[in-house]
Every structure is written in structure tokens, then in C-alpha cells.
């Protein structure tokens, strides 16, 4: 089965790289990361900088030059870039995943592919595998763009390039966590696309869930009963999973107080990935495939 999925994954990339959408989304991801980076630089130049220590709701002012320069030195700058890229990248990958699957229904190309004897299971697996690969690529490109900006900053500031508290292993762990933290959102978008057979509806459902959940988490945070179930909510589990040892969360939405620990978060996220992907496979396998709808 794997022998069939890997060539199909390569073919999915063949199709995707000729589309404009993924390149636009990638450019958008890099742009957002750069805006976040240079905004920090501008704040430093103005004499004050705020970072998301303990989450967006409780910011701490870093007033010393050394502390600030530490943020721009390697690998801290890359970890910070990863934090920003993960937040935006998840949203952009949901849009891409929903479009990738939904347009196959809308254009009627799913029917064309299936009539050549392509199994449904390998076809969907190839799409998921490619999306997982893209999540890695988005993080690499966005983080690499931060590395370039960081190098420019450090050169102009005549500062040390390596942070005194540098821990490169944190960067690797953070990267792995960021990739895994994106997978439930990809699975959500894929499931929505398979369920609705429409890219527009799938994008709406995925983004709607993402933002409505963020709002509800803040609204319901004061209720005791909510605290008991909060750890099982997707956004909270992602926050719990990607938070660093210093308490800085990759997720900017919601309060970081009472986040589930990494182990529980990992299991919750794994459950989301398995259930949403499994449901997507089940629906994809069983549903009859109609012709193009001109979407």
C-alpha cells in the first residue's frame, strides 16, 4: 500500500506546484512572519518591546538591550519565528487542505482519477501525506526567512550571533511540536472537505471552528465546569502541546492558565488526528462520486 501512496504523493505535488494558490499562501506565511519580526525590531528601536511571555494576555516588557539582542540571536530568533509561523501556518494549511480536496469534487477530477483504477484509500492518504510534508516545508521556509532577517539585524546591530543561553535542541523539539500541532487542523479541513464535497464550505467550517473556538474558550474560561473539559478542546490541546518550558506558548489565542500538560495534549491531539482522518477516510471510501459542479 505504501508503495502506491508514495508515487501518488509525488503526483499530488506535481499538480500542486503548478497551482498559484500554495505559492501565494506560502508567500503570505513568510510575509506575516516578517511583519512580526520587523515589528519587534521597530519596537526595540523605539526603546520598548513586548513579547508573549505567558501568553498574549500577560505581556512582559523587556527593557534591556541585552535581553532584546538575545531575542534576535540564533537560535532564539528561529524559535520565535517558529512560534509565529506555526500560528499563521496552521490557518493557511487549513485553507490549502480544504481547497485541495474540495476542488477535486468541484472540478470533477476525483471521478477522472478514480476511473483510472486509483484506489480511494491511497488517493486520500497521498493527499494527507503531502499536506503533512507541506506543513514541514512552510515551517522551514518561514523559519529560514527569519534566519535571513535575523542575520541582517545582527549585522547592523553588531551583536553576538549566538545566544548565550542557546539550546539548539529546543529548536529541533519546537519544530517537531509545531509540525504535529498543525496536523489536527489539516485533518479537520480534510474531513470538512470530504464531508461537504466543497472547498468553500470546508474553508468556512475549518476557519469558523478555529475562530469560534478561540472566542468560546475566552468567554467560558471563568466557569468551573469548563476547566474540567478545556484540556480536550483542540485549540487548548495544541497550546498545551506546543508551549515551551519557559511558558511561552506557540498559540497566541486564549489564556495559557490551566493548559493541559504536554503528555495529555499529545494524546488529545493524536485522538483528533485519528478520529478526523478516520472519519474522512470512511466518508471518502463510501460516498458516491458525482461529476463536476463547476466550483
Amino acid at each position: 500500500m505504501i508503495a502506491q501512496v508514495l508515487p501518488l504523493t509525488r503526483l499530488e505535488w506535481y499538480k500542486l506546484r503548478h497551482r498559484r494558490m500554495p505559492w501565494i499562501l506560502l508567500g503570505f506565511a513568510v510575509l506575516l512572519v516578517q511583519i512580526a519580526f520587523w515589528a519587534s525590531y521597530a519596537l526595540f528601536r523605539s526603546g520598548e518591546v513586548a513579547v508573549g511571555e505567558g501568553g498574549a494576555s500577560s505581556t512582559t516588557t523587556i527593557s534591556t538591550t541585552d535581553q532584546f539582542l538575545e531575542m534576535f540571536a540564533f537560535p532564539t530568533s528561529l524559535t520565535n519565528g517558529l512560534i509565529v509561523a506555526h500560528g499563521f501556518g496552521g490557518i493557511l494549511l487549513m485553507i490549502l487542505a480544504a481547497s485541495l480536496i474540495g476542488t477535486e469534487y468541484g472540478w470533477g477530477t476525483l471521478r477522472t482519477a478514480l476511473t483510472k483504477g486509483t484506489g480511494r484509500w491511497p488517493l486520500l492518504a497521498a493527499k494527507l501525506l503531502m499536506l503533512a510534508g507541506l506543513s514541514v516545508a512552510v515551517l522551514i521556509v518561514a523559519t529560514a526567512s527569519v534566519a535571513v532577517s535575523s542575520a541582517i539585524d545582527l549585522a547592523t546591530l553588531d551583536a553576538d550571533w549566538i545566544s548565550s543561553s542557546a539550546d539548539w535542541s529546543d529548536l529541533g523539539i519546537g519544530f517537531g511540536k509545531a509540525v504535529f500541532g498543525m496536523l489536527p487542523y489539516i485533518a479537520l479541513a480534510v474531513f470538512a472537505a470530504v464531508l461537504t464535497s466543497s472547498s468553500g464550505a470546508a474553508i468556512g467550517i475549518s476557519l469558523g471552528y478555529y475562530f469560534v473556538e478561540s472566542i468560546l474558550v475566552n468567554v467560558l474560561a471563568g466557569f468551573d465546569w469548563f476547566q474540567r473539559v478545556a484540556g480536550f478542546i483542540l485549540g487548548r490541546a495544541v497550546s498545551g502541546w506546543v508551549q515551551t518550558e519557559t511558558g511561552v506558548s506557540f498559540q497566541s489565542s486564549g489564556t495559557t492558565a490551566g493548559l493541559p500538560d504536554a503528555s495529555q495534549s499529545f494524546l488529545v491531539l493524536l485522538a483528533y488526528v485519528v478520529v478526523l482522518s478516520g472519519a474522512a477516510f470512511w466518508v471518502f471510501q463510501r460516498r458516491e462520486v458525482a461529476g463536476a459542479r463547476g466550483e
Partner: peptide
Amino acid sequence: AIVETPAFYPYLSGRRNLAYFQGVMG
């Protein structure tokens, strides 16, 4: 087989569409 109006990827050329489906067949 062709069923109803042939459906291909609109942004790919005719040749690339065929190349893709040829690849799907291995």
C-alpha cells in the same frame, strides 16, 4: 473511460493533465 463531460485540472495544460493521469497508472 470518460463519463459525462471530461473533467481535468483547469490550470494544467492538456499534456500535463495526461501526464498526471498516466502517472496515476504508474
